[in-house]
Amino acid sequence: MKVYLYSGQHEAGSKFRLLVLKQLGPDCLKSFANISEMLSSLALSLKSKDIVILFVETLRELEELLLVQETFDDVRLILILPQRDQLTVAKGHRLRPRYLTFIDSNMSGVYGVVEKMLMMHPD
């Protein structure tokens, strides 16, 4: 089972990517800093129940991801949003994440969820 991570091009995202990498190891993780690069890579390789983590630092990135919502239809999505206001949260839920949190939160929740997801479908 592969984990795909989009972490953008900002500092917080890069830090987060290193932490996830440390937790999962390089074999299990494939990460992207650019949405279109991620899309062209995922289009043909993404499988049902794969885990996709989106670390979204700006509202513009969120809008862009909403346009390609279909890509994440049958995967297990973990979404990390830039803001906590109702509108942003509502947009986030349109991607139907299986876990939703915010960039200013403690990320231990994300790690716990990824671990449990990997345990549920280890292959």
């Binding site: 509502a90 994440p97 876990y99 716990g112 969820v113 449990k116």
Partner: peptide, 20 residues
């Protein structure tokens, strides 16, 4: 018109579930 919110009971570790 309002949110469709998914709770994935299988993916949430027990320690996280109530606060989530």
């Amino acid at each position: 018109a309002n949110n469709f919110v998914v709770v994935d009971c299988a993916s949430l570790p027990e320690t996280l579930i109530e606060s989530t």
